[in-house]
Amino acid sequence: MRKFALIALPYTWLVLLFFVPFLIVLKISLSDLALARPPYAPQLDLSAGWQGIKDFFGGLDFENFIWLTTDDLYWKAYLSSLKIAVISTLLTLMVGYPMAYGMAKAPEEWRPAMMMLVILPFSTSFLIRVYSWMGILSTEGYLNQFLLGLGLISEPLMILNTPVAVYIGIVYTYLPFMILPIYAALDKLDGSLLEAAEDLGCSRFTAFWLVTFPLSRSGMIAGCFLVFIPALGEFVIPSLLGGSETLMIGKVLYEEFFNNRDWPVASAVAVVLLLILIIPIVLFQRNQQKEREAGQ
């Protein structure tokens, strides 16, 4: 009985505020736009009894999803989100790996402090971290002033409001997600393996490439998914740094809902985004599962 009470409360909460809302999104994605309040049809009319339920299900269709395939905007936005997420994940890996490697090779007594330095920016406001790049990257920003002052460029660079600014923003804000799992993998690595490789005549670099790098693979995979998954649906970074030129699906969804007030299409956009996300999420879970089994 007590166990029942313990389960019931969080269970009911999640069903009502997570599962049901999700079903509502699914339902509205199959509805039509209507000039009514709320602005979609059909509405479930239980007072009409069985006929009401029949009319309700009869009124649902896949029109919005067909619309998503015919209008260029949507598939372009999905593709461009995928492209931006992939490129920035790889860039984060390129920045994060050397840092994680350096941390794992650093003297033992420095490591907790370095760990702290990696996590600390992560706990300050996401919005502020993204905002801090607006002043740096704008045409009259600090970076351009610096480069102009050095005489390296003669015209200010256009970085803000281009995809490049979005890449920088994603690398900057998600870097801890990449560093921590790679560091964890490198930290577990048995140093004697490297010594053995060097004894057997490998150069430092070959030893790294043949031993360390493959053994840190699961950390890299975990880090890449931890960056890729949230980057794909990102809204704040493209809207502050990307300008109107950068298409990302999170931004399209937000604007479809708030500016165009087209709830059925916004819901359909959300459903498709979730379907796309299922693939990396399942792959990520598999990687973690394998990792756990290997650890036992």
Binding site: P21, P230, G233, F235, L253
Partner: peptide, 25 residues
């Protein structure tokens, strides 16, 4: 299974979708 799914899903759910679904509710 549904319970543990509902615990882990919000961790990977894009915020725009969580927000949209709650607003519609």
């Amino acid at each position: 299974t549904l319970f543990s799914g509902m615990i882990y899903a919000p961790l990977v759910m894009p915020e725009v979708i969580t927000g949209l679904s709650l607003l519609l509710l």
